[in-house]
Amino acid sequence: MPTLPTTAAEPTVTLPATPSIRRRLATMLYEGVILFGVVFIAGYLFSTLTQQRNGLTHHNLLAAWIGFVVGLYFVWFWTHSGQTLPMKTWRLRVVTADGTALSAPRAIARYVLAWLWFLPPLALHPLLGLSLPHTLLAAAVWFVLWTATGRIDANRQFLHDRLAGTRIVAVGS
């Protein structure tokens, strides 16, 4: 188990083991299933309240609303228990680099940085005028590269966790 550096007066703190990359990716897949329902309800609420009759009407505002709702979902769970439902199922918890619970600003930073999994390749679509197959290929390559950051890091954490000062740990055995 990794230990954190300490000063002479402090005892050594031992953090739980880092779960495998496969386990964390399975959690992300399950998270996508849960988020489908969250996004559906948020979209329905938005379209009902704005009397939206066309998908192109207020589409930028809808995207911002859904981003806000999804962010609220993650930040609330990460700051209250350190776990979303899929994380509980797969026995994972998000904590700070030193093993303490996340504060709201750190959880928000982690949420924003987690968008790096998707936004860079998707931004290439309009910037370079890529076709849909080329955009999907770029997204797939980016996803594999981003996943590889979990293998390169000494603590087996993905880059967004490293940048946010957080880590995923296993809960129980």
Rank of each mutant, 00 (worst) to 15 (best):
Ala26Gln: 10
Tyr44Lys: 12
Val33Gly: 10
Gly37Ile: 06
Met28Gly: 13
Leu61Ser: 14
Gly43His: 09
Thr12Trp: 07
Arg22Trp: 09
Trp65Met: 04
Phe68His: 05
Leu35Ile: 05
Leu56Pro: 00
His59Trp: 12
Tyr73Leu: 02
Asn54Trp: 10
Thr48Ala: 15
Leu49Cys: 04
Phe36Leu: 11
Gly43Val: 00
Val75Trp: 10
Val70Asn: 10
Thr27Phe: 02
Arg23Pro: 01
Leu15Ile: 07
Phe36Asp: 00
Phe77Asp: 13
Asn54Lys: 10
Phe40Glu: 01
Tyr30Cys: 03
Gly82Glu: 06
Gln83Val: 06
Phe46Cys: 01
Tyr44Pro: 00
Ala42Leu: 08
Thr50Arg: 15
Leu49Ile: 11
Gln83Asp: 12
Asn54Glu: 14
Ser20Gln: 03
Val13Arg: 12
Phe68Asp: 05
Gly67Pro: 09
Val33Asp: 05
Gly82His: 08
Ile66Gln: 15
Leu56Cys: 02
Leu49Tyr: 07
Gly82Ala: 09
Gly71Phe: 08
Thr48His: 13
Phe74Ile: 04
Ile34Val: 15
Val38Cys: 01
Ile66Trp: 11
His59Glu: 13
Ile66Val: 13
Phe74Tyr: 10
Gln52Leu: 11
Leu25Cys: 03
Glu31Ala: 03
Gln83Glu: 12
Thr27Ser: 15
Pro19Cys: 05
Leu29Ala: 13
Phe68Asn: 03
Ala17Cys: 01
Phe68Gln: 03
Asn60Phe: 08
Gln51Ser: 13
Val38Met: 06
Gln52Asn: 12
Gly71Ser: 07
Ala26Phe: 10
Val38Asn: 07
Thr84Lys: 04
Thr79Pro: 09
Glu31Cys: 00
Leu72Glu: 13
Gly37Tyr: 08
His80Cys: 05
Leu85Gln: 09
Val33Pro: 07
Gln51Pro: 01
Arg23Met: 11
Ile66Phe: 05
Gly82Thr: 06
Trp78Ile: 00
Leu29Lys: 00
Gly71Trp: 06
Ala26Ile: 07
Leu15Lys: 01
Val39Gln: 12
Leu72Ala: 15
Tyr73Ala: 01
Asn54His: 13
Thr18Val: 08
Leu49Ser: 04
Ala26His: 06
Thr18Cys: 13
Ser81His: 06
Leu61Arg: 08
Trp78Gln: 09
Gly55Asn: 14
Gly55Ser: 12
Pro16Asn: 08
Thr48Glu: 15
Ile66Ser: 13
Arg53Thr: 14
Phe77Thr: 07
Ile34His: 02
Ala17Thr: 04
Pro19Val: 02
Ile41Asn: 00
Leu61Lys: 03
Phe40Asn: 01
Thr48Ser: 15
Pro16Ala: 08
Gln83Leu: 07
Thr79Ile: 06
Leu45Gly: 15
